[in-house]
Amino acid sequence: MQDTTRTPLPMATTGCACCAPAAESTATTTVQAPGVTGAPAPAGISTYPVEGMTCGHCVTSVTEELSALDGVATVDVDLVPGGVSTVTVTGPVAPAAVRAAIEEAGYTPAS
């Protein structure tokens, strides 16, 4: 057997406990809310900066909470692990409801 040095796997030090992706990686996810297939483009596209998202699990949590709101047609998340991610919501939905849903998912809407 040879002596070798192994590089340890990255450990989650902040954010969600499931993983800690590299700081320079990004991911984008677009989800269409249920029952909105083939519908005309709804009025209103809003973007929200969100802190605390670190991985795909975070994206799924936020997307599920927002998709459950009445009026939400699509949710798009531009993930910046460890930084400020951008959440874009399409549809006629109140900004206060979006912020509340983001907080309900466990994340912080940035100012």
Rank of each mutant, 00 (worst) to 15 (best):
S46V: 04
P92E: 14
L9A: 15
C19D: 13
A96Q: 02
T13Q: 12
A97Q: 10
C16W: 02
Y107H: 03
G44I: 01
A97W: 03
T108K: 04
P95I: 06
L79N: 01
S85P: 03
T14L: 10
P10H: 10
P42L: 11
I102A: 04
Y48H: 09
G35E: 10
P40G: 02
L66R: 07
L9D: 14
S25M: 14
G35M: 02
P40I: 02
G56P: 00
P10M: 13
C16R: 05
T26Y: 12
S25L: 13
G56C: 07
T90Q: 14
C18R: 06
G15I: 00
L9G: 09
G52S: 08
V75Y: 05
P21A: 05
P49K: 03
P40L: 07
G38S: 04
D78Y: 04
A22C: 10
S46E: 14
S67W: 05
T5R: 14
A68D: 15
G15P: 07
P21V: 11
V72L: 12
V62E: 12
A73D: 15
L69A: 10
V77C: 00
V72I: 06
T14V: 12
V98W: 05
P10E: 13
G52N: 06
Y48M: 06
C16I: 08
G35S: 13
A17C: 03
G82L: 09
V31C: 08
P92S: 14
V59P: 03
R6S: 13
A101H: 06
S46M: 12
A96D: 15
P81H: 09
V59Y: 06
I45T: 12
Q2H: 12
T13W: 12
P34L: 02
V50Y: 01
P81Q: 05
T4E: 15
R6F: 15
E104Q: 06
V59H: 02
C58T: 01
C55H: 08
Y48I: 00
L66W: 11
T63H: 10
A39E: 15
A73E: 14
T4L: 13
I45E: 15
T47V: 03
A41H: 08
G83A: 08
A68K: 01
A97Y: 02
T90I: 08
V93N: 00
D76S: 14
A43F: 10
S46L: 08
A68M: 05
C16T: 08
V50N: 04
A101M: 03
A101N: 09
Q2Y: 09
A33V: 03
T47W: 07
T86G: 07
V98E: 04
E24V: 01
C58I: 00
S46G: 00
M53A: 05
L79V: 09
V72M: 12
G44C: 04
T5A: 13
A105M: 10
D3L: 10
T13E: 13
Q2W: 13
V36F: 08
V59R: 03
G38W: 06
P49F: 09
Y48P: 00
V59F: 09
T63M: 13
V59S: 06
S85E: 12
T37V: 11
S46F: 04
A43E: 14
A20F: 11
A105C: 02
P109Q: 09
V62K: 05
T90S: 15
P81V: 03
A39G: 01
P92Q: 14
S25V: 10
C58R: 04
